[in-house]
Write a protein that binds this DNA or RNA. Structure first.
Lengths: 219, 219
DNA sequence: AAATATATTTAGACTTATCTAAAAGTTAAT
DNA sequence: ATTAACTTTTAGATAAGTCTAAATATATTT
């Protein structure tokens, strides 16, 4: 059994490893987990001793197979609980994160599988992220960052890089939702802002926003 | 906000206060919470400093109004989650306690009320215990301990004093369930064992078992 | 009422997870 | 190739919650 803190580190490192494809260093983790670099070093040593990750002083970390397995279990729980909160308790997608952060640490050999079955085996969470199955298998949809899409190309909004509630509320306000069709109308070279069109309206989004949107290309 | 440990102490003290009507002393709490008397003393001091209970050295404790309010909130959460586990995830009544022990500590201003509404405002948990409402109000059914029922009297099984899984499994085995009609056929003076009859069968139960059964008298 | 048994509290230690401040290492820039 | 800037680690402290062992109260016998 692992502590909540340990589970949070593993989950965070896993996500960083897969979102940014760089080396995962101390400050990156400290930022994400909202703690100090010194605390990260301590925990990294502990997880390394447990062989959940490999660690070379000053050189960053990498999850072992075991560490990745545990991370995926926590992520599975998080995403299934998020689905539950949205589909059964009528929460909106920008309200569920903090509650799921707690629920993901409930310990039971059967609970999450029973919940999954009750929810009829959903494949994606409310933010479009794939839910790992019982064995840790996870569907990887091929998506492209909106920043890399050329003028005239079309796609659907598949998932988000950053699912913070501030960003989700922004999408609500701009009437952008998962699965929406998006077409790039124009790219402004001066500030890299992007003029896009959905089925219902047009709008201009900043480079920062575009970087958070993963698009499944339509051809 | 209170820690899990604090919430557990308050909940335990509340239940002890209402089940046994005696003074709540250190060892009683230590037993229930599976810890040492010295740890209980430490925590009691802390809760007393926070004015959640009154405490006179060597003389036991009593919850304040505030302490009771918090205890009832935790109990409310515990019982609603138990109901969820049994009714939605198909757990049986002897499997839900440990999971509910964890779920009861999830922090959110809205979660438990939304869950309650989703469950359509159940009034009792799977063990027959009443679920406090949003304001901490709790239905107190008038019941009598089976030990105090005379030969020939009839009643229905309302709730249990001890809902440990060992005891629940015993009831399963003996085919006794909540709401079952029970009639006392004979009381054996030698060991106080009780011969009872349900709608479907007869059996003999020990004094210890009888003490755990709360009966609603029928007349 | 003294002696014994039992219950409770205190003192001091330990673990987990965190922090600040200082030291050490790495990277980038001149 | 030094210096400066930044990152990471170490050292030492702190807080919560627990424990053991010893000390102190209270309760029960005789």
């Amino acid at each position: 059994m692992f502590s909540q803190a340990e589970e949070n580190y593993l989950k965070t490192i896993y996500t960083l490893q897969n979102r940014r494809k760089t080396v995962i260093n101390t400050n990156l983790i400290a930022d994400k987990i909202n703690t100090k670099a010194s605390s990260v070093t301590d925990m990294i040593k502990k997880l390394s001793a447990k062989e959940l990750l490999t660690y070379k002083k000053y050189k960053g970390v990498q999850l072992t197979e075991m560490g990745e397995k545990i991370a995926l279990k926590v992520i599975r729980k998080h995403r299934l609980w998020e689905h539950f909160l949205v589909k059964k308790l009528n929460y909106s997608w920008d309200e569920v994160h903090d509650i799921a952060e707690q629920l993901e640490h409930i310990k039971s050999d059967t609970l999450i599988d029973n919940l999954e079955s009750y929810l009829q085996f959903p494949k994606f969470d409310p933010h479009g992220d794939p839910i790992p199955d019982k064995d840790g298998k996870i569907i990887l949809t091929k998506t492209v960052n909106l920043l890399n899409i050329k003028v005239g190309q079309k796609g659907t909004l598949d998932s988000l890089k950053d699912s913070s509630d501030v960003f989700l509320k922004y999408l609500n306000k701009k009437r952008l939702a998962l699965r929406d069709q998006i077409k790039v109308i124009d790219i402004e070279p001066f500030d890299n802002s992007i003029h896009i069109e959905t089925k219902t309206h047009q709008l201009v989004i900043s480079k920062k926003v575009a970087d958070n949107l993963n698009i499944k290309i339509l051809r």
